[in-house]
Amino acid sequence: MDEHEVVEDVHGFNGLPTAQKRRSILRFLDRRDYSRFLKDLQSRRLRGAEALDVRSLGLIQSISCPADRICLPPALQGRVVWEEDVPVAIHALPKGAIVKEKGIPWGVRHIQASRAWSKTTGFGVRIGVIDTGVDYMHPDLRHSLERGINLLNRMAPPQDDNGHGTHIAGTIAAANELQGMIGVAPRSTIYPVKAFDHNGTAYVSDIILGIEWCVRNQIHIVNMSFGMKTKSRALLSAVNSAFRSGVLIVASSGNDGRTGEIDYPAGFSNTVAVGASTRAGRIAKFTNRSGLIDIYAPGDRIMSSWLRGKHREMSGTSMATSHVTGATALLLALKPHLSPAQLKSVLKSSTSPLRTSKAPRSAGELNVVRMIKLAEQL
């Protein structure tokens, strides 16, 4: 087996100028090949070879490396699958105004979350938010956060330098009703996974590393308010692995207003695909929509936490996704033994009908009261 030839190939690309670098993902179909490759790579490093920017994606027995495209040696043909490590972007429309509104935001009221708090507040549920990080100093979130991880700088905390992740976290689990706001599941716990930079961009491999971290740390639900048009087989493999491990991924459909198609990872069957709705209970104009969407939730002009202790209105399927993630936490705290497939089934089966729309759909709008009633019958 010639794993060392792949190491040589990767090493050759490492000398390219940074501006020219594109990343690749190599997925080994046989775990023994993957183990031998890692052993060979480690041996070279121990012998003092130049450090290679090769990242191990153990969840799917793959590597990510800076290479345009690697020519596999004949011995590995059919044993390793190549794909480009493409960029991914967060799902949000242009930022709205900074606001001073307090209390329960309209989206949290609209899905009737507060009517379930006498029975469940999400206590004990661990939520991974793979995003731009979170503002750890925000008063709305100080009781809702654990350390998490910064995949861009392992030595630093996952502090938000964009705002998007803080906004998502606020809708899910803010717990400061008197001075700030309260989220859908105010006693759930968020573990921020910073995979996106200050511009709101990441690589597929960053997302896979985030999913792997969540699986290893026994996270229950993962919020993915981002997407891409490309169908990544590596990301699909990671999503399916998480699903089999008992982790439910909630993903946003995208904001391009397309009909008949949605972004990935929402387009994968083992996620909960979320579209955005308005105050009037209609599908938001900006949301992507198709029969692949599992549920709609408030995503238009959503007020939530922002950097430096502030609050901001934002719109997008990102915001809708965070409502569904919070509702899933309420459900899981009430029925902790439900599997990802059962959680998804309850969410889809308990929705309220949306108002008349010409958009193709089979999904309804999130309704927490109906969700809890259905769950109590299980």
Score class of each variant (00 low, 15 high):
Gly165Met: 00
Glu177Gly: 03
Arg142Val: 13
Val134His: 01
Gly133Tyr: 00
Gly122Ile: 10
Ala173Phe: 04
Glu177Phe: 15
Ser144Met: 14
Lys119Arg: 15
Ser144Gly: 04
Asp160Gly: 02
Asp135Gln: 01
Phe123Ile: 07
Gln159Ser: 06
Gly170His: 03
Leu141Pro: 06
Val125Gln: 10
Gln159Cys: 03
Pro157Ser: 10
Gln159Phe: 12
Gly170Trp: 07
Ile149Pro: 05
Met155Gln: 15
Arg154Glu: 15
Met181His: 03
His164Pro: 01
Gly128Asp: 12
Pro158Glu: 06
Glu146Ala: 11
Arg147Glu: 15
Gln159Lys: 03
His138Val: 05
Asn153Val: 03
Thr132Leu: 00
Met155Tyr: 13
Ile149Trp: 00
Val125Asp: 07
Ala169Asn: 08
Gln159Arg: 09
Thr132Ala: 02
Asp161Leu: 10
Ile130Ala: 12
Arg154Trp: 14
Ile127Trp: 15
Ile130Met: 09
Val129Lys: 00
Tyr136Thr: 11
Ala169Phe: 10
Gly148Tyr: 05
Asp161Glu: 11
Met137Ser: 12
Ala173Met: 07
Asp160Phe: 00
Gly163Phe: 02
Arg126His: 08
Leu145Arg: 11
Leu152Asn: 05
Val134Gln: 00
Arg154Phe: 14
Ala156Met: 15
Ala174Phe: 08
Gly170Val: 10
Ser118Gln: 04
Gly124Ser: 13
Leu152Lys: 11
Asp140Lys: 03
Gln179Arg: 04
Leu152Met: 14
Met137Asn: 03
His167Val: 05
Met137Ala: 12
Gln179Glu: 11
Met155Trp: 10
Gly170Phe: 11
Glu177Asp: 14
His138Asn: 12
Thr120Arg: 14
Lys119Asn: 11
Val129Met: 09
Ala116Leu: 08
Ile127Ser: 12
Thr121Ser: 11
Thr132Gly: 01
Gly163Arg: 05
Thr171Cys: 10
Thr171Lys: 06
Thr132Asn: 00
Thr121His: 06
Arg142Asn: 10
Arg142Gln: 15
Thr171Met: 07
Gly133Ala: 06
Gly122Trp: 10
Ile168Arg: 02
Gln179Phe: 07
Ala169Lys: 07
Ile168Thr: 06
Thr120Pro: 13
Leu151Ser: 09
Arg147Trp: 08
Gly163Asp: 04
Gly170Leu: 05
Met181Arg: 08
Gly180Arg: 02
Thr121Ile: 09
Ala174Cys: 06
Glu177Met: 14
Gly180His: 01
Ser118Val: 12
Arg142His: 12
His138Gln: 04
Val134Ile: 13
Pro157Asn: 09
Met155Leu: 10
Thr166Glu: 00
Phe123Asn: 08
Glu177Trp: 10
Ala173Ile: 07
Ile149Val: 15
Ile149Asp: 04
Lys119Ile: 14
Met155His: 13
Met137Glu: 12
His143Glu: 08
Pro139Ile: 12
Arg147Val: 12
Val129Asn: 02
Glu177Pro: 12
Val125Glu: 09
Val129His: 06
Asp160Met: 01
His167Ser: 03
Asn153Trp: 01
Gln159Trp: 01
Gly163Gln: 02
Asp161Met: 05
Arg147Cys: 09
Ala173Asn: 07
His164Arg: 03
Ile168Trp: 06
Ala174Gln: 05
Ala173Lys: 11
